[in-house]
């Protein structure tokens, strides 16, 4: 039931290889371009952050695994552009490395062109960001210190195979509330056009010994941000 991106706790990935702290922000020019195109297309307003995360997560596991980071972004973007009918599959198939420039339909103005992000508006768009806190009718059920358990089974309860932010490694685990973040958009709903459904969000701590069969240290903990509907009272 999990997807390939849900890799917390997985074995077999080998060492972390830190690049020097002064390394370039973008290792390749196309990385920078991929990031910028993704942000600029997001400004067209056809999807939200949860939709775009889900577009990357549901890449075929073989593709997700073999793609580098920004290739995943590009693949997710291509999926969204077609699914949201911003572009057609035919458009993508006719896209080349920029040396052709033909195609009669490209001359017609795109209905979303008026929304294209202009250079002069970039600073304001980045500064605005996308806050996720919203007023909610759902009452806050837990307070710091309260014991809770992550529901089991995990997974999206609205859409089979849908987006969720409850990692598999925490499903069914017992923890305790360490912080109440307020009420936030529920990704499980918002990713699928089912409304923002805001509800309380908490930072929940788990003893490493309640998550892992061989914890490194008896005092270690993992904290996750979890929505109220992911939790049950203990």
């Amino acid at each position: 039931m999990s997807r390939v991106h849900d890799m917390g706790g997985r074995f077999g990935d080998g060492p972390v290889t830190p690049e020097p702290q002064g390394a370039p922000v973008f290792a390749e020019d196309w990385h920078a371009r991929a990031l910028a195109i993704t942000l600029a297309c997001g400004a067209l307003g056809q999807w939200n952050i949860d939709t775009s995360r889900h577009a990357r997560e549901r890449l075929a596991p073989l593709d997700y695994t073999r793609f580098s980071y920004y290739e995943k972004w590009l693949a997710g973007l291509a999926t969204l552009l077609v699914e949201k009918q911003v572009l057609s599959a035919k458009d993508l198939a006719s896209a080349t490395d920029g040396r052709d420039g033909t195609g009669a339909d490209r001359a017609a103005p795109h209905p979303l062109a008026a929304r294209a992000l202009k250079a002069a508006d970039v600073a304001a768009a980045l500064a605005k960001g996308g806050p996720a806190d919203r007023p909610s009718d759902v009452a806050v059920a837990f307070a710091p210190g309260d014991p809770v358990r992550c529901r089991r089974p995990g997974g999206n309860r609205l859409v089979a195979g849908g987006h969720t932010r409850l990692p598999t490694y925490a499903v069914g685990a017992r923890g305790w509330i360490v912080r109440v973040h307020g009420t936030h958009v529920l990704p499980d709903s918002a990713a699928h056009g089912l409304g923002e459904a805001p509800e309380p969000l908490y930072a929940v701590a788990f003893a490493a010994s309640d998550l892992w069969s061989a914890p490194e240290h008896p005092g270690d903990e993992v904290v996750l941000d979890l929505w109220q509907s992911y939790l049950e009272a203990v």
Partner: peptide
């Protein structure tokens, strides 16, 4: 990336100058 940028620019959906700014 280049193909996508070219296509989206031709459609008027992105502005290369905005990409430079980002």
């Amino acid at each position: 990336v280049k193909a996508l940028e070219t296509l989206l620019t031709q459609k008027g959906l992105i502005d290369p100058a905005a990409l430079d700014e980002i």
